[in-house]
Design a protein around this nucleic acid. Structure first.
Length: 445
RNA sequence: UCCGGUGUAGCUCAAUUGGUAGAGCGAGUGGCUGUUAACCACUAGGUUGUAGGUUCGAGUCCUACCGCCGGAGCCA
């Protein structure tokens, strides 16, 4: 359908390129062309309101029957939700319009009329929305979440890049399991057993000896049959690794990264947080340094809170919540029992029952967002720990080489992007923090 | 894998003690000159998750299975 606008209104020929809703403020009083989709439309007998969504924002376009003519006005009334259209008209400041600006429309062109769009402006259940995830992404809240995710990733990369970290990607397909095969997705690699990575850390350690400070950033896979609000089977993790760094340095880098991300989102994404109805007061309190608690202190604190827990065990999700709710900042828990940690984690020289690991627990019950620690740099100790875990030294020869040729203290951590997004956006579940989540019971769409 | 909940129109939900399956939204038709998830009137829309059982009669009670949601375990 192509309709010509009447004579005294802006015509499409006057404009060469389309602008976007995000930049409308620069065109007050001018004619613009917008390309987008119908978000919603309303009409009374002689005035129509078209909410146009163009990916950068939503703007109300006003069509007056007297101005646009009978034919165009009748065509407007045929428009359905999510129909793709190009609209042209004059930008006008108007306090009655959501967003402060509206378009006095001169005309529009329909590209495709969308019939029976499944997601109506009313409420829907999560199962239905997840089945229509490919369409749900267009809605206002989901759009805002993806923008915040984008900003979190940008802030992460800016922070690391500006501090002389080099992005060195690590492989997704790996030949062996660094911490047992039960949590890994297996795959056939030309007749050999291979796995999807659950961490780039071992490779990061090699890269850190080439570049001193490195990070990898990619998808990570866990085949755990976990069915909780904080687990995905495929998630994105950024993993910085630093040569010549100990546990203290590791904690400092991690807390500064987290604090920087929060301040950047507050600075740039206020509009999105408003759409998400996030209480930003709680985010504004996030400032490095974060409070620190040793594992041993955390266990004592839990025991005095009435939790039945012995020294040596791992924290459950509920335990994490109880500990972190005592603080309004992210909390660093450090020095865990060596027995429950991976073979490559360095033992505490002051107490060999402890490993030099650390976790950061997000406030408001969001749980662990960062996990990391100092690596064992001594060849003999590392070899002994590896064999203790029943792993084959032969498969880790290249990793052991890192201790043979210029070994140094080395530390790093992994930060789960989806958990950080869930926390900063104030979402109850990580499934909305990624465009197409992979969950225990969900592989589609 | 275990425990709990749930499944009714395209969507979100009602339906009394077991007695004719209903509303809002969405869709369609008409009306309305400033709407904000617009509003008003009318219309269409159903194998009540599946299979079996009890009963004169089952959305409702019983059994099994399936899906989904939440929690536990396991994990980041």
């Amino acid at each position: 359908m192509q309709l010509s606008p009447p004579g005294n209104l802006p015509s499409r020929e006057n404009m060469d390129t389309a602008t976007s809703v995000k930049h409308l403020g620069e065109f007050t009083g001018e004619e613009v062309l917008l390309e987008g989709w119908v978000y919603n439309s309303r009409s009374s007998g002689k005035v129509g309101f078209l909410m146009l969504r163009d990916g950068t924002g939503i703007v109300q376009c006003v069509l007056s029957r007297a101005d646009v003519g009978e034919e165009l006005f009748a065509a407007f009334k045929e428009l359905t939700q999510e129909t793709s259209i190009t609209v042209w008209g004059v930008v006008k400041e108007d306090s009655r319009a959501p967003g402060g600006y509206e378009i006095i429309a001169g005309g529009f062109t329909v590209h495709q009329l969308a019939l029976d769009y499944p997601i109506t402006p009313k409420e829907h259940g999560t199962a239905f929305l997840m089945d229509h995830r490919h369409l749900w992404l267009r809605s206002r809240r989901q759009h805002a979440i993806m923008l915040v995710r984008h900003e979190i990733i940008r802030a992460t990369r800016d922070f690391l890049d500006d501090n002389d970290f080099i992005l060195v990607d690590t492989p997704i397909i790996t030949p062996n399991a660094c911490e047992g095969t039960s949590t890994l997705f297996g795959l056939d690699y030309f007749g050999r057993q291979a796995y999807l990575t659950q961490s780039g850390q071992l490779y990061n350690e090699a890269n850190a000896r080439a570049h001193k400070r490195v990070y990898c950033f990619g998808p990570t896979f866990r085949a755990e049959k976990s069915k909780t609000r904080r687990h995905l089977t495929e998630f994105w993790m950024v993993e910085p690794e630093m040569a010549y760094c100990d546990l203290e340095g590791d904690m400092a880098w991690a807390e500064q990264l987290v604090a920087y991300i929060v301040s950047r989102v507050l600075e740039t994404s206020g509009q999105q947080l408003e759409v998400l109805e996030r209480d930003t007061g709680k985010l504004e309190q996030v400032k490095a340094p974060f409070p620190r608690l040793s594992y041993t202190e955390a266990v004592k604190s839990l025991q005095s809170a009435g939790v039945d827990m012995q020294w040596g065990g791992d924290f459950g999700g509920g335990d994490e919540t109880i500990i972190s709710e005592q603080y309004d900042q992210p909390l660093i828990v450090h020095r865990f029992p060596a027995a429950i940690k991976a073979f490559y984690m360095k033992q505490d020289p002051d107490d060999n029952k402890l490993a030099l690991g650390m976790d950061i627990l997000a406030p408001e019950g969001y749980g662990e967002i960062v996990g990391g620690g100092q690596r064992e740099e001594d060849l003999e100790v590392l070899m002994a720990r590896l064999l203790e875990e029943g792993l084959s030294a032969q498969e880790y020869e290249w990793y052991l080489d890192l201790r043979r040729y210029g070994s140094v203290p080395c530390a790093g951590f992994g930060m789960g992007i989806e958990r950080v997004v869930a926390w900063i956006c104030g979402l109850p579940h990580v499934r909305e923090t990624i465009a197409f989540p992979r969950l225990l019971n969900r592989l589609e769409p």
